Every structure is written in structure tokens, then in C-alpha cells.
Amino acid sequence: MGKETVTSFDVAQRAGVSQSAVSRVFSPGASASPKMAEKVKKAADELGYRPNVLARSLITGNSKIIGLVVAYFDNQFYPEAVEKLSKALQVEGYHVLVFMASNGDNIDKLMQDLLDYQVEGIVLASVAVSSDLAARCDAVGVPVVLFNRRQDDDRFSSVTSTNYEGGRKIAEFLIAGKHERIAHIAGWEGASTQRDREAGFMSKMEEEGVTLFAREVGNFQFDETQEATRQMFNRDIVPDAIFVTNDHMAIAVMECLRDEFKLKIPQDVSIIGYDDVEIASWPSFSLTTIRQPANRMVDATVSTLMKRIRGEDITPQKIEIDSPLMIRKSARVPHKWVEE
């Protein structure tokens, strides 16, 4: 037989207090004298009692749980961002329930599972949902904030870096560096980050009258990106510069070019990524990249979510945070940047 469940009634009897007193002691924000709290907690420890947070949330309607849906952890930007999000939400008094998803998964089903947990808010990290589910979340009063993604739906707030401008900065840098055969390796084409970064990149290229030399798709996957690199370089004439949509893929490109094609970076080909993950600054990569300001993005996400939960600001916000170009050694530096 399993161990018999200890209830709040048992704790009340052991402590010599009412059951409602036990409830107050274990309810955040409820009033209970220090003497009573000490007595109740001592009895709870002796009996091995643990309050049922989920059951209490069904009664109070306040679960103090935030649902966090993450698409993938291969890109080092996300483990760092999720850790920061979790800590920031804990400071606000919330627990974080993490669900994993991937491109092509049934996100709507997963989101319905989250709603069944009575979450008070949802953060979607690089995940998009259908308009039907948006309407459901809106109807039940659960605010949703998109992190590092945007969606053409006025019911959702979103927090991103300035992806379009970031793409323009990269094109400007490569063109000023006198590169003649500029290529692009794209991520998953269904992602708003991919579309916005490439759109900004191409707008600057077109303004300057520069034609894209080659384009392949790496789908944000290491192996697929290396295969895309092989497709680009198994030719008589190859790129002398590549903008890769994120650092995870940029590192895959660098490894492939060095190990398989014996090319030197940046002497033979310049590489620029996007995100500025921790290993981008390592001497073995020294990757020139656009920095996504994770701390500021997390602060904006948590602040927006808390305001919507408290009803202080019910208007969805579309927040973009400026992203600087981090100049390192993986790309040829234009003379005007050196002079500055």
C-alpha cells in the first residue's frame, strides 16, 4: 500500500489550530501571526505535509504559474534566455511550467494543455500559434507574450530585437568591406525573425545595387546548415562573405569551411551571425554578429506580462529593442569602421 496522504486537517489537529489557519499559513499574501505560522510549519514538517498548490489554484483562481513554451535549445541563445526568464518570473512570485515544442508540432494542443494547468500567463519563445487559439486565450483572460517572435495578431504582445535593422547593419558592413560575392544562409523560413532579418539585409543590398550571390536554407539546424554550406562551396566560384541568420548556424558554417574546405576566415570568406551567444566571443570563433540584448528582452517580456496579468495595461505591445553589431575577427572590417 502507498503512503497515506497527509491533509491540512491532520496538520491542524497536530498544531491545535483551525484548518483555515493552516490554509492561511500556506497561502502567499494571507495573514497569519508569526507564532501561529511557526506552530503550523512545525506540525507540517513532523507529518511530512506539503500543500497542494494546483488544488488551491482551482479554488482561488490564482495558480501563480506562468507557462513557458520553447521551440528548441540547440541555439545557445535560448537556454540563457529561458534561465533569465525563469529567474525574473520567480522574483515576481510565479512558478514556471516549461513545455517543449518544435516547428511542425501541434502547438494548439500543447497550449490547450497549458490552459488546463490554470496558468495565469503564457510566454512563447520562438513559437507561433493559430488565430483560433489566440481567441481562446483572449476569451479566458490569459495574456500571451511572444518572445523573440512576432505575429500579425493584435491580441498578442511581442518582444523582439530590431531584426530588420539588424539585417540592414550586416549588409552595410559587408558592402563597406568591399565583398564582391555576398551570400545568405537562412534559418527556418516560417520564423518571423528569419523573415525580418533577411528582409532588412536584402533592402540594404538593393539600395546599394548589390545582387545576392547565393542563398541556401539551414532551418536553424547544425547538420542542415553544414549541408547548405557544402552546396554553396562545391562550385567553381564561391562566396567571399556569408550572412548566417543565427550564431548556432554561423558556427556550423565556420566549422565546415575550416575542416572540409580548408578555407581561412576571414581571409577567404567573411562570416557574420546573429544573437551573440556566449561562444561567439570565444577566440576560436571570434564571430562578428548582431547582439540580441537578452537581459533587456527578458525585462520587457516580464514587465509586459505582469502588467497584463494585473490589468494595468490591457493593450498588447509590440516591443523592439535595439541590437548592436559586435565586430570581431570572423569578418573583414571596413576601413571606415577601423578609423572610427
Rank of each mutant, 00 (worst) to 15 (best):
D116L: 15
D138S: 08
P51M: 01
N103I: 12
E83T: 14
V129K: 05
V53D: 06
L58A: 08
V91T: 07
G61L: 00
N148V: 04
V53Y: 09
M111C: 12
V69N: 03
C137N: 03
A135I: 04
N75A: 00
S130P: 05
R149V: 08
A139M: 02
N75D: 00
V91H: 03
I65W: 10
L54V: 10
S126L: 05
A71S: 09
L97S: 15
Y117S: 13
E120T: 14
V127Y: 00
N103V: 14
Y94Q: 08
I107L: 05
R150Q: 15
G141V: 07
S63C: 04
R56S: 03
L89A: 09
N52Y: 01
L110R: 10
A71P: 03
Y117V: 13
V70K: 03
Y78V: 11
Y78N: 07
V91F: 06
Q90L: 09
V82I: 10
R149H: 09
Y117C: 13
V69F: 13
A88C: 08
V96L: 10
I122H: 12
A128G: 04
Y78C: 08
S63M: 04
Y78G: 09
Q76K: 14
L89C: 14
R136K: 08
R150H: 13
L115R: 09
V96Q: 08
L114T: 13
G67W: 10
A125E: 05
T60S: 10
A81I: 05
V144I: 06
N52E: 02
V129N: 06
A55K: 01
K87L: 09
N75Q: 01
V70A: 00
Q76A: 15
F147H: 07
V144F: 02
Q90W: 08
V123P: 14
H95A: 11
F147P: 00
N62E: 13
S126K: 04
D74R: 14
V98Q: 07
P143G: 12
V140C: 14
Q76N: 15
A81G: 02
L89Y: 07
I65C: 11
S57R: 11
R50I: 11
A101Y: 03
A88L: 12
N106H: 10
D105K: 00
V91W: 01
K84P: 01
V129L: 12
Q76I: 14
L133P: 00
R50Y: 15
A88F: 07
V127Q: 01
V53P: 07
G104E: 00
